[in-house]
Nucleic acid binder design. Sequence first.
DNA 1: TTACTGACCTTTT
DNA 2: AAAAAGGCCAGTA
Length: 103
Amino acid sequence: MATDFTRRALDVIRAVPRGRVATYGQIADLAGNPRAARQVVRLLHSSSQTEGLPWHRVVNGRGTVSLPRGRGYEEQRAMLAAEGVVFDERDRIDLKRFRWNPA
DNA sequence: TTACTGACCTTTT
DNA sequence: AAAAAGGCCAGTA
């Protein structure tokens, strides 16, 4: 059932380097479907259990963590901070500096 | 097969 | 600047 997109998306996620973050749309784009950002979400939910997936390096296009507090927000934020990613006073990441830029 | 859902994105009030 | 609305894709019931 896994479409090519799904597989490629997973590869892309695994390829995100430490200390960098990627947006859902970006991943979808690199996987071949610029509009399938939502699908990426489902992937993370399905595969987050499977270790080896840096789900914490995926954030929304605004550079903020989408997870609700107490449901991973703090956890993701902590992991990113441990990798050197900085959150500003508004709890946003400066994508200009931390967004993963492939190529 | 149709209907619903989701850690979204972009454009428009 | 902030909030609302519409659009999109794939997987699951």
